[in-house]
Design a protein around this nucleic acid. Structure first.
Lengths: 152, 152
DNA sequence: ATAGGTCTTAGAGCTAACTCTAAGTCAAGT
DNA sequence: ACTTGACTTAGAGTTAGCTCTAAGACCTAT
């Protein structure tokens, strides 16, 4: 299947402005053009866009993504660089999740104390601001519960 | 204990430029001044900074954090707004973790295939690009393993 | 008393990642 | 034939969140 930039924008939620910006930045050198010079996306291109979005979401700057794409274009002699990149990026994602779990813990604790404060009608009544340290296991269970409601 | 802006910068890793920027933006109206007009931070202020950082990390814009802080300054009649804010923010954090788990899954899969490709010396040999869907439970186990190495 | 360090302010500059504008091409529909 | 609409380009503008500069005040140690 072939898709125009507008169609891809709708399908992916990435605006056509942004898609052109990515193209100019060298993130999508694989996108072909038609006789009129307009971009024509195929299904592989959509997969690549999904990967670009994934990398971006993990906090990778566009410049690094561009590097990765150019390794892909270069072929098999860059396989180990690409593997190393993803291994580094895995560390980043796991650390990110770790950070988020800490933030979740803090937010949960705030919810606990504000619930009590709302009941009491006053903040002063509940100022034992010691974190009721929920275990990591409990936090993971909480995420897992969300997970069950909204599967991957 | 009292701390100068420079000391707080070192303690928190937030630059003094940024601390002044936050102050100008209304995020830290609680910070007192000395006779010379210099900012003086106490331990409560450090706690508030930690909370500000937490909210920022969960993706909340500074403007919303400013709103929250001004609710805090306003006292008990804003308790329910603050509770509602944290409840919303919890949803955001959980969704964030959910996104990160999806990204982790994708990155893991890439690592799997690039390992095989590196072995084979060629990408073409491994192009069965079907995601070897790891269960969410497995992903959570992976995070939990990290968790054990680097406890909260 | 003078140099160094830390602070103050207002405001300019920077970066990443868009986001949009202007001017123009092209093809399809009425 | 002509309008509509989607596309093209180069390049300007925007936003958030810093990051720094310049000019000056003040305290402390030599």
């Amino acid at each position: 299947m072939m898709y125009s930039i507008g169609t891809v924008a709708k399908k992916t939620g990435i605006s056509s402005y942004t898609l052109r910006y990515y193209d100019k930045a060298g993130l999508t050198p694989f996108v072909k053009r038609d006789a009129q010079g307009r971009r024509v996306f195929n299904d592989d291109d959509l997969d690549s866009l999904a990967l670009i979005r994934c990398l971006k979401q993990t906090g990778m700057p566009l410049e690094d993504i561009r590097q990765f794409i150019s390794w892909c274009e270069a072929g098999d002699q860059t396989l180990s660089e690409r593997l190393a990149m993803f291994e580094t990026q895995r560390e980043a994602v796991v650390a990110q999740i770790h950070e988020s779990l800490k933030n979740l813990q803090k937010v949960n604790h705030k919810i606990d104390t504000y619930r009590q404060a709302c009941q009491a009608g006053s903040e002063a009544a509940v100022d034992c601001d010691v974190i009721s340290k929920r275990s990591s296991a409990e936090l993971l269970k909480q995420v897992a519960a969300y997970e069950i409601k909204h599967p991957l």
